[in-house]
């Protein structure tokens, strides 16, 4: 049964990843792309979780945590940068 679950989740995650990548390539603004990258990282983490659950090991658990923290730091940094850069032209 686990093999069927693995196949189904693989299809779902692939579709989700394709959607996120389309948004990254199309996204009208930088923030849209950052957001979609965050979602792509979350999808990657989810896929790692499914792999761990099906094959019953915990090797990648810290990798999942690291991925989520990388996504967090990345989006916070970009958000700050965008907010700072955009405010100047509006003021003058």
């Amino acid at each position: 049964m686990m093999q069927i679950v693995l196949a189904v989740t693989a299809v779902i995650f692939s579709l989700a990843a394709v959607g996120a990548i389309i948004r990254i390539s199309r996204g009208p603004s930088l923030l849209d792309r950052v957001l979609a990258t965050d979602v792509l990282l979350a999808i990657l983490g989810g896929a790692l979780c499914v792999d761990m659950a099906v094959n019953r090991h915990l090797n990648n658990l810290m990798l999942v945590v690291a991925i989520s923290i990388i996504g967090f730091i990345g989006s916070v940094t970009v958000a700050r940068f965008v907010a700072d850069r955009r405010e100047q032209p509006n003021e003058s």
Binding site: V8, A16, G19, V39, A42, I43
Partner: peptide
């Protein structure tokens, strides 16, 4: 859980 990712996409 996988469907949640698809929903986000």
């Amino acid at each position: 859980g996988a469907t949640m990712s698809l929903g986000a996409a």
